[in-house]
Design a protein around this nucleic acid. Structure first.
Length: 557
RNA sequence: GGCGAGUUGGUGAAGUGGUUGAACACACUGCCCUUUCACGGCAGCAUUCACGGGUUCAAAUCCCGUACUCGUCACCA
């Protein structure tokens, strides 16, 4: 076809497109940003629920844009209307808000480079595709699904490269009359790239994370515009990221194979190329097979984003975890700078893992524990309450009704240099501090008695009723219980007991353990004296009686 | 099958030719501290970097081959 014929074809195909490329180039000028500023984007498609991998890439987008004073925008990639799910878009923006990974621009966030939703950009795509047709870089293809499937089968048998290219691209050189004829017969068509590539030549690609890679040139006539007139991912990516002036495309590893296509697209469109950073997928070593596998929503509950919300994993702790897998040196830095924030750390692509990033649940749990250990009692209370209001109404009521006590309990051993690490999720507070609320304690506490031991209940009762003085300090109290221990045949210190175990019934620790089990229902708890002080003598006695009752019932059985 | 990438301990990993007799963290084990549980401290935990060959005075680090794993080869993103 001559250029004149191509022009006629373009007008025939897109009679309603009146704008030219220039119009859009002027409408979306260069951004006015400081040197080195990165413009990143998160481009989810509303076809399913958000998962950890999505969060990780959005997190990277945010962090890099923020530290270079650039821009991070959200673009909804909804070109596949068939796979759209209801509420998909709201879900994406909701998750971004919930997890505090907030774009400063984009769909529902505003900005000058919109619309930030691909279904509203059809005219833009068609303007550029029209231009490509005129230039001879794109053409309508009328091949049917069956024809394509047959070619594929033939290629598989012949073990040649699969796809529509070279001799297989039947409609590549259709004459104008032939096209007109097919259009007259109302044949469906797509617009394909007329790829100028030569598979025998090599191109070198530099990825910010993976480094240099060599590929054969792209030579397949990839579909650019689908039969319904919407673009494929590849075409939309080129147009949008050019017009929105993205500087760094940070995306999942699964896209590296399309790099030759994307680079070719930028070339023939005459766009300045963007930089790419491909993030390795989050993987896991399968317990059964020992193989590394892709994470699955069914097998790995933590992969779905809901898990974090439902279990009450603090956002900040999750951010810390995302930061540690984003840059391999973050973890050590944070250890050395515990008082600093994530935003103080300088992220770099060089420190990003090239291979698969495996999910380390134990590490996340540890991060969470450290997070909680640094929070004050009030903070833990408020945050837990906020979580419970959403996920455990009954507990939220109890928290509200027992605020004062609860904060006191949550504050035990918080002021020292070595805070406890006993909670890793909001959902654990109820169980971990069940002794803090009377009604909860009565209802749930002795259900599973952690200790198998039998304690001398009357001895403990005697101690509480006749020897316990709560109106004192920890040291005096402890000296008192030591005295009590030795006058009742127990060793005053575990060391004495160890030296001559036969001389004693046990040691102070055993008495403390008995008290602890009776008043908290558990073997582990924060400082015992602090707990007793908060409870007061009456409640302590009541609990010991409850314990006694519980035990006698059990013995009868 | 073609193309691209990865392979270091129980786990996450550091490491880009010689201060690595392989960091650090998590987990685990032991000891110490301690009224208990924690927290904290100390120690232990890969004679070796998937395997085989090569280059070099010197290799986890460079090259080649093999194996395995992952990604991709759609009018899905």
């Amino acid at each position: 076809m001559t250029e004149k014929e191509r022009k006629e074809l373009a007008d025939l195909l897109f009679p309603n497109i009146k704008n030219t490329r220039d119009y859009y180039e002027k409408k979306y000028p260069e951004r006015n940003l400081p040197e080195g500023a990165m413009v990143t984007r998160y481009g989810p498609s509303p076809t399913g629920s958000v998962h950890l991998g999505n969060l990780l890439s959005a997190f990277a987008d945010m962090v890099y844009a923020r530290q270079t004073k650039g821009s991070f925008f959200l673009r909804i990639e909804d070109t596949d209307q068939k796979r759209m799910i209801e509420g998909g878009i709201e879900n994406i923006t909701g998750v971004l808000h919930d997890f505090e990974i907030l774009p400063n621009e984009g769909y529902s966030f505003g900005g000058d480079y919109g619309p930030y939703i691909q279904s509203e950009r059809t005219e833009i795509y068609q303007t550029y595709i029209k231009d490509l047709i005129i230039q001879g870089y794109a053409y309508p293809c009328f091949m049917t699904e069956q024809e394509i499937a047959d070619i594929r089968e033939e290629q598989e048998i012949n073990k040649t490269k699969i796809g529509i290219y070279g001799v297989y691209a039947q409609d590549r050189d259709l004459s104008l009359d032939e096209v007109k004829e097919k259009l007259k017969n109302k044949e469906d068509y797509v617009i394909r790239l007329k790829s100028p590539g030569d598979a025998n030549k090599e191109i070198e690609v530099v990825d910010c994370i993976k480094g240099k890679m060599k590929f054969p040139e792209h030579n397949v006539d990839t579909v650019l515009l689908k039969k319904d007139g919407t673009p494929t991912y590849h075409f939309a990516h080129a147009i949008d990221d050019h017009l929105m002036h993205t500087t760094h495309v940070i995306r999942g590893d699964e896209w590296v194979s399309s790099l030759p296509l994307h680079i070719q697209l930028f070339q023939i469109l005459g766009f300045t190329p963007v930089k790419y950073a491909h993030i390795a997928p989050i993987t896991i070593k399968d317990q059964e097979t020992g193989n590394i596998r892709k994470i699955s929503k069914r097998k790995d509950p933590w992969f779905g984003v809901k898990y974090y919300d439902e279990n009450g994993i603090p956002i900040d702790a999750l951010h810390l975890y995302l930061a540690t897998i984003t840059n391999t040196n973050f973890e050590e830095w944070y250890l050395q700078n515990p008082e600093k924030n994530i935003s103080d750390f300088e992220f770099s692509f060089e420190k990003q893992a090239i291979g698969g990033t495996s999910f380390d649940e134990a590490k996340l749990v540890n991060l969470c524990k450290t997070y909680f250990s640094r929070k004050s009692g009030e903070e833990v209370y408020e945050e837990t309450l906020a979580w419970a209001l959403k996920h455990d109404k009954e507990y939220a009521e109890l928290l509200l009704g027992n605020k004062e006590d609860m904060i006191k309990f949550l504050s035990i051993e918080k002021d020292g240099p070595r805070p406890r690490k006993d909670i890793s999720k909001y959902s654990e507070v109820r169980e971990e501090f069940s002794y803090a609320i009377d009604s909860l304690f009565e209802k749930e506490n002795y259900k599973k008695n952690e200790s198998e031991k039998e304690y001398d209940i009357s001895l403990i009762k005697d101690y509480i009723e006749n020897h316990l003085n709560l109106d004192t300090d920890n040291e005096t109290w402890f000296n008192g219980i030591k005295e009590f221990a030795s006058s009742n045949g127990y060793a005053a210190s575990p060391k004495d007991y160890k030296k001559a175990p036969d001389d004693y019934k046990g040691h102070v620790g055993d008495i403390c353990e008995a008290i602890r089990v009776m008043i908290t229902g558990r073997l582990k708890s924060p400082d015992l004296f602090s707990i007793m002080k908060i409870l007061g003598k009456d409640r302590i006695i009541k609990r010991i009686e409850m314990y006694q009752k519980h035990e006698s019932v059990n013995t009868v059985k």
